[in-house]
Computed example of a mutant assay.
Amino acid sequence: MPGMLSPTKTRTALRTSARASLDLLLVLLLAAVTLWLLGKAWSIVWPLVIALLLTTLTWPPTRFLRNHGWKPALAASLVTVVFLLLGIGVIVLIAVPVASESPKLATGVADGIQRLREWVAGPPLNIDDSQVTNALNSVTTRIKDSAGTIATTAVTGVSTVVNGVVTLVLALFLMFFFLKDGPRFLPWLTRQLPGRFATDVPVVAARSWATLGAFVRSQAFVGLLDAVFIGIGLWIVGVPLVLPLAVLTFVAAFVPIVGALFAGFVAVLIALVSNGFTDALIVLAIIVVVQQLEGNVFQPMVQSRGLGLHAAVVLLAVTLGGSLAGIVGSLLAVPVAAVIGVVWTYVRDQLTDPDPEPIPDVVEQAEQQS
């Protein structure tokens, strides 16, 4: 009867769907186990990741020195020391302006709170000053009642800072060894792996390293351009803490989309507190113009080949990374997505059948012979 389902085709389709679902469940289970193992070993994975990111930045000068006759250990040592001195110099340049401007910022915050109280007391809100005072007293009481929690949070914060310092020191040592012995890693890996893995894994690793290096270096260059232009704009307007805000802009550039919004918000907020509403609007306009130049001019020029990721994929990756692991997840989201894209492209190329040879046109050949 026409229109009836074929039992044989239905069973075949169900069997194929069940097999594909089982394969997908196994892949998801393997991914979950991998993430669980990474979480358990995060104390060593995180310094390793930081060391890899730092190595992508410091490898070009190291390679330059090695190509000009420097011993690997000597070149790696010099680059590591210079990088460490630059990091310490940046911290000092940030700490000194922040310490000198902190009284002015505190006064600006107090003035801003006073202006806010005057604004809410007038139309259209017409909130009585006693109500504002009661609200502030209520907040103060809650803070006093939460003294134990605040103390625990402070201790946790100190512990986090100590762990961060230990992680950074370990990452610097790992960076030194990567700079010194990095070129010998892929040949060693090839000798350790059996069969097909001896070819596939080193190729994927080399491509992933190239993609990661291109991403980090291009983001660093684009972030530097943003920091310079926004810093000049803040200096012209007369906003305090120009250098720390420029450094924040540079660091935030490594978190695509979200980082630029955060750095811009902080700059506008400080301009509002210290200089007033008009200068804050000017700073906002400067940041919008620079971000437009970055998105439409700087990045297309610097990232000529790009990462092969659509802007929507980048935004979703940053959002997912931030929801799963906070700031760390946002920082690593795009590099991880780019590496996954490299792996997927390689697997797809290996599983794709080559294009068939074109069949010669017999009639055309006969006409040419005649």
Rank of each mutant, 00 (worst) to 15 (best):
M1Y: 07
M4C: 10
P7N: 06
T8Q: 05
T8W: 05
L22A: 13
L24D: 09
W36F: 11
I44E: 05
I44M: 05
V45E: 07
L48Y: 07
P60C: 01
R63M: 01
R63G: 08
F64Y: 12
W70C: 07
A73Q: 08
L74G: 08
V79I: 15
V81P: 04
V82E: 04
G87D: 02
I91S: 00
P103K: 00
K104C: 03
K104Y: 12
V120D: 01
P123C: 06
D128E: 14
D129A: 14
D129L: 12
Q131Y: 09
A135P: 01
V139E: 08
R142Y: 13
I143P: 03
D145N: 12
S146W: 13
I150Q: 10
I150R: 13
A151Y: 06
T156D: 15
T156Q: 12
S159I: 04
T160Y: 09
V161Y: 06
V161A: 15
G164Q: 04
L168Y: 10
L170W: 00
L172H: 06
L174P: 07
M175D: 01
F177W: 15
F177I: 08
L189W: 10
R191W: 09
R191Q: 14
P202L: 09
W209N: 09
A210D: 15
T211R: 11
G213D: 04
G213M: 00
A214G: 10
F215C: 03
Q219Y: 11
A220I: 02
G223I: 01
L224A: 15
W235H: 10
V242I: 07
V242E: 01
A246D: 00
T249P: 02
A252V: 05
G264A: 06
G264S: 08
G264K: 04
F265W: 11
A267W: 09
L272Q: 04
T278S: 12
V283Y: 10
L284V: 00
V289T: 05
Q303W: 03
G306F: 12
L307V: 05
V314A: 07
L315E: 05
A317D: 05
A317I: 00
V318Q: 08
L320H: 02
G322P: 02
V328R: 09
S330F: 07
P335E: 03
V336E: 01
I340W: 11
V347C: 13
V347A: 14
Q350P: 01
L351H: 11
I359F: 06
D361G: 00
A366R: 14
E367M: 10
Q369W: 08
